[in-house]
Write a protein that binds this DNA or RNA. Structure first.
Length: 553
RNA sequence: GCGCCAGUAGCUCAGCUGGAUAGAGCAACGGACUUCUAAUCCGUAGGCCGAGGGUUCGAAUCCUUCCUGGCGCGCCA
């Protein structure tokens, strides 16, 4: 719809140049077409005449008049007017909007999909929580945002892979192994003085118990070897929990990528060698440093510590280079906002190794403040006082939980009150949207009973859909694809949420004002067609967000 | 001290690439169920868009200084 109009405007502009009415020859790359807030200003408005005023040295309204004279004839347009300082307002003919309904009905589940992504290969890496404990609520937001973003990108025509980076190398894994081993000995009756810096939480004992059953007592095994064994067992076990929790949340990854495998394949050393060859690394104080300051970082960063072990950053260098080697055109990392200080060194590393830093996009997810009855509580994995994601899903429900995490722009903080989320279940916005869907389904059941059949595209008597609110609904449905594209281009899945709430609101309003099934059969069928188009878009949007579209509530 | 994010109605937040009279939900107040599901709808009220300066036809949006809150600033991950 918008692109058709844009083409028409472009043609009119070129005609003006061809006739010598306009002389600058200025062709804008993109003609801004926006939907005015005030419906009196028509369906679309452009500021083209104003932007041309300067190069043309003519008054905006004068330019607008030339364009309008040519556009008025266009069958697409019902009315074209000049307004205010030089806006051109377009009112499209009603038939344009009715065609939208046909597109929705014939498109079905595919309606709203777009090809703007042009098959660009893009990887979304998210969650990537350390496999040293179950997922907690803080991971939930990143999980949902990453998943919805990936879905939105797919719908917009990108070739998307969802990946989880498993940090199965490094200190935290050794700590896990030691913690499990100590709990194991405890189970065997030993008196253990459990260290402060171990993982305190009860699940460690659960893992130890399972290990004892499946592997045995580890008597006579060398200490270091025992820790390693416990660590491997623990990581594998905890990963199954994580995977199950994510599955419960409706999230599936295409790939689980092991950090340890980078070391096993010498990938880290290879990348470090490349950096050295480029003269980007140097030795100082017995450590190996990357000269990230050369690419805008505050200070240089350590790759290999003076004790010979690698930093997390070192494996991240290898990991991210390998992502591009795998053929991704663009890579998105979804991180907690507390890691933002890490971005400059990552971009610096990419620049150093010859990649445009823009190919890596880091999406920062702001903190979730977890409350219960308005009282915040702090979480620490080590203190053992944390609420798992699983508990929250069980308590609040998957749909409400996902919707809640998506309802805000991800760069603003989110207060999540468990009691409130439960209590609110009756006026939680997710139910509002789902209810709209269920209502259409209910109408469908009644229609079937009354023998009113859903028209096929082309059989609809559009004369029966002349009410302003009916036209308004069609216009809103027409915007869906654009919403998806915007959400994908800007990495903002919350846009889909706001659109859904809009659509549900307009539907509920219509439902209360007008009966769908009335005495006149043609009207009933036409309205049935309209509300089912709404239903399809509601379902498609909910599906993108991973929220169910119930037929009954 | 430096950096990142935020500051919009009483509360929680939208506001697309700078556009015309800044929006929604909750809370408050007043209405609508013999009618396809009232988990809904309709109406009223509510604003120095944190503050100052700048850019231009036009700023909540861009630049700059300052204020407030959160988070970072390790040879931790």
């Amino acid at each position: 719809m918008k692109t058709q109009l844009r083409q028409a405007i472009m043609a009119a502009l070129k005609d003006c140049y061809a006739d010598g009415q306009l002389t600058s020859g200025e062709i804008p790359e993109d003609i801004l077409l926006e939907i005015p807030k005030n419906p009196d200003h028509g369906d679309f408005a452009t500021n083209l005449a104003m932007t041309l005023a300067k190069p043309e040295r003519k008054a905006p309204r004068q330019i607008a008049e030339l364009l309008v004279a040519r556009l008025q004839e266009n069958p697409l347009c019902d009315k074209v007017e000049i307004a205010g300082p030089g806006f051109i307002n377009f009112r499209l003919s009603a038939s344009c909007w009715y065609e939208v309904l046909d597109r929705v009905m014939t498109g079905g589940k595919d309606y709203g999909r777009s090809t703007v992504g042009k098959g660009t290969r893009i990887q979304v890496e998210f969650v990537s929580a350390n496999p040293t404990g179950p997922l907690h609520i803080g991971h939930g937001r990143g999980a949902v945002v990453g998943d919805a973003l990936a879905a939105v990108l797919q719908a917009a025509g990108y070739d998307v892979q969802r990946e989880y980076y498993v940090n199965d190398a490094g200190n935290q894994v050794t700590t896990l192994g030691r913690s499990i081993l100590l709990r194991l000995r405890e189970l065997q009756g030993e008196q253990i003085d459990f260290p402060e810096d171990g993982y305190q939480a009860a699940y460690v004992t659960d893992v130890a118990r399972k290990l004892r059953q499946e592997v045995g007592e580890l008597e006579g095994v060398d200490e270091a070897e025992a820790i390693e064994l416990c660590a491997r067992f623990g990581v594998a076990e905890i990963l199954t929990w994580i995977e199950a929790d994510l599955a419960e949340f409706g999230i599936r990854f295409d790939n689980w990528y092991s950090e340890k495998s980078l070391y096993d394949r010498q990938m880290v050393d290879q990348e470090l060698t490349k950096l050295k060859a480029k003269g980007l690394s140097f030795e100082q104080d017995d450590a190996l440093w990357l000269r990230t300051t050369e690419f805008g970082d505050d200070k240089d960063r350590v790759l290999i510590k003076s004790d010979g072990s690698y930093t997390y950053f070192a494996s991240d260098v290898a990991y991210h280079m390998e992502k591009f080697d795998r053929g991704f055109d663009r890579v998105i990392d979804v991180w907690g906002a507390d890691h933002h200080g890490y971005i400059p060194r990552m971009k610096a590393m990419l620049a150093g190794l010859g990649h445009p830093p823009e190919d890596l996009e880091v999406l920062l997810i702001q903190m979730v403040n977890l409350l219960r009855d308005g009282v915040p509580f702090t979480m620490g994995k080590r203190s053992g006082n944390f609420i798992t994601l699983r508990e929250v899903i069980d308590e609040v429900g998957r749909d409400a939980c996902r919707f809640f995490f998506l309802i805000r722009r991800c760069d603003s903080q989110l207060d999540f009150d468990l009691e409130l989320a439960k209590q609110q279940s009756s006026d939680n916005p997710v139910y509002y949207v789902q209810y709209a869907h269920a209502r259409v389904c209910s109408i469908n059941r009644n229609a079937e009973e009354a023998g009113v059949s859903l028209p096929l595209p082309g059989e609809v008597d559009y004369q029966c859909l002349a009410l302003p609110e009916e036209l308004a609904l069609a216009k809103l449905l027409a915007r869906f694809q654009e919403v998806i594209e915007g959400a994908a281009l800007h990495y903002e899945p919350h846009r889909v949420v706001f659109y859904l709430q809009d659509l549900a609101a307009q539907f509920h309003s219509y439902y209360n004002r007008q009966r769908v099934l009335v005495d006149d059969l043609n009207t009933s069928r036409a309205r049935l067609y309209l509300v089912n188009a709404v239903r399809i878009v509601l379902e498609n949007a909910l599906t993108l967000l991973g929220v169910s579209a119930p037929e009954q509530m």
